[in-house]
Design a protein around this nucleic acid. Structure first.
Lengths: 356, 356
DNA sequence: GTGAAAGCGCTAACAT
DNA sequence: ATGTTAGCGCTTTCAC
């Protein structure tokens, strides 16, 4: 007659409360379908016994796990900090637990993880997925999916409004007297990279700026540091980097090489990640509303889980804003070594960046 | 006869392969307990049908979910980046999924979350828990638990070796000619805070330094910024801040008030978080091996899950190292006239910028 | 409003 | 080596 070590079940509660197990079940999952009195008694007994519903058994039965998965391409990347936080908070608020998976930029790992996780969750947020559109659509067949930071036709997507952010950035540069901008490209497989470059091309035309591009670069500080060499050779007066990490690295590399930012070169990043405000100089950046995007992604996912139909226009676009800080300034008066940076770029021929 | 929309089960596979469901089950969970031939056939059929074992059903039956939970007190805090990454990587490597929960520094929220999560996971890593020792021990009763960044007698713990790190920090200061250090305290409820302060007291004696303390402060950059005022009033020559966030904030606040770091005041932080290397000046800091701690925590947890007995000495202590960067320098000559900018920098002490 | 009973998909004795 | 048969703890018709 020792107290069983294993946790009490509805049967234990039912027995102690003198009701049927199904009544206990209802008392917990269908409040209202049981008389107030019995409900009270059951809850009392349950509390006393320390009963907790077993989420697994529940999930096995009704198919809902109250868990979602957030799949990111690199937990290390600070862009995801805001996103993780946003998704987690929204999920928690709605009673969902969040499973975090890191694909380490590997497509195969992403597929493997998804294969494993899919059945254990009610839905998935894919942040910066490296999967092909088709694969994502296949995944979406099995569970509700929301794609973050990318547009995949036929799925719910949450993206920043890169266009207007870039526009503001280039206007800013134009106003500072710059005549051209160089884009430091990110990973070719990145949807964001394609979008950023294309937006830049469009806006550049609008403000009468020449645009050119170098790269691609791995979007890390180290790569930015290394890129400084090439950038210095090209000697642009302003550069727009694929992301803040690259921009911060570049700025440091430039500094080490004796090129002052923003006096001799203006640098703008993307994302407004943690740290972009306290690096030196503080980075001017196109700020994606990371946390809000995470929240929005969960909201969409929750809609999908509840079976609400996808709008024809299921793309949530959150406005990005230019945050002007210390890394941008007036165009330097004289360009240094004549690296002959004429670099005319055929505007339209270029947009077919391998993005996705 | 339409293909069922719902995923195939072992029964479907069994039927198609002409064997019993239990054989299919074995083919997947007990490789070797089934003949090579049948196993092959079963796998072939399963692959064709697109069968995937349902983790929930499996978990319900055998009690193992292959999921662990990582509970952090604030996802926003960069200290957790390394930890999250370490735990996630180790877990993934061992075939575990990681559930991330954020308690937002709230004890009650932590308990609530734990109540909800506990049954759905095989074990829990508690990072910077705000729970009482007793509560943690209660939790440990229900599921294997590893406590990170804190020592709770009777549980498995992973902590940095604060002692030696602080010792190195104070030696460094002493060598730079400092005679006293001020500690910027963190949250009173924090185990780390107590340990850091105590270690400092001990080491200070050893190196003939006077130690004093102000605070407590919320461990954020904003708080550090605000603390600058008080620190400036006290005018210590060196300060050790509870963590890097506080230190970075302080440095900025000091800068705004015209106090130069390290010329007029040396600042040392804790943790070596993301950003501490690219802030200005780069921060000298006592580097906890965050990622390694995460990895170690999972390793311990996995041991516990597998039922390996807890060593009498179940505390894993990972050495912390002093990373000397730009925020520490020789004690200023005279406390009065500011901006005398002599800026003498001990060349060799400086090169250790890389580390982790 | 409440009880009885049939599963959800899987694993684990227990047989054979 | 493989088949039979109970459940794991819960939800959910279907009766009453």
């Amino acid at each position: 007659m020792t107290e069983a070590a294993r946790p009490p079940t509805i049967y234990d509660v039912a027995l102690a409360a003198g009701v049927a197990s199904s009544t206990v079940s209802r008392a917990f999952s269908r409040p209202g379908r049981v008389s107030a009195q019995t409900a009270a008694r059951i809850h009392a007994v349950a509390a006393e016994l320390g009963y907790r519903a077993n989420p697994l058994a529940r999930a096995l039965q009704n198919g809902r796990t109250s868990t979602i998965a957030l799949v990111v391409s690199d937990v290390t990347n600070p862009v995801f900090f805001g996103i993780i936080r946003g998704v987690e908070a929204a999920a928690a608020g709605a009673g969902y637990a969040m499973l975090l998976a890191d694909t380490q930029e590997s497509e195969t790992l992403e597929r493997t993880l998804l294969d494993r996780l899919l059945q254990g969750v009610d839905g998935v947020v894919l942040a910066s997925s490296r999967l092909s559109d088709r694969t994502i659509l296949t995944v979406a067949t099995q569970r509700p999916v929301v794609v973050l930071n990318r547009i995949v036709p036929g799925t719910r997507c949450v993206v920043p409004d890169t266009e207007s952010g870039v526009q503001a950035a280039l206007r800013h540069l134009a106003e500072l007297g710059h005549r051209s901008v160089t884009y430091l490209a990110g990973p070719t497989a990145s949807w964001a990279d394609g979008t950023r470059w294309r937006s830049m091309l469009d806006s550049a035309a609008e403000f009468g700026l020449k645009a050119n591009r170098i790269g691609p670069f791995v979007p890390t500080m180290a790569a930015g540091l290394a890129a400084a060499e090439e950038v210095r050779r090209r000697a642009p007066t302003a550069v727009l980097a694929y992301n803040d990490l690259l921009a911060i690295g570049l700025t440091r590399g430039l500094g080490q090489a004796g090129v002052r930012v923003p006096e001799q070169m203006s640098v703008i990043g993307f994302d407004n990640v943690f740290g972009s405000d306290f690096c030196t100089p503080p980075l001017t950046t196109v700020a994606a509303p990371l946390r809000a995007m995470g929240t929005a992604a969960f909201r969409e996912l929750n809609r999908a889980i509840r079976g609400e139909p996808m709008h024809s226009h299921s793309i949530v676009s959150l406005t990005a804003q230019l945050v002007v800080r210390g890394s941008t300034g007036p165009r330097k008066r004289k360009s240094t070594s004549p690296a002959s940076g004429t670099t005319r770029v055929p505007g339209s021929a270029r947009q077919a960046s391998g993005s996705i």
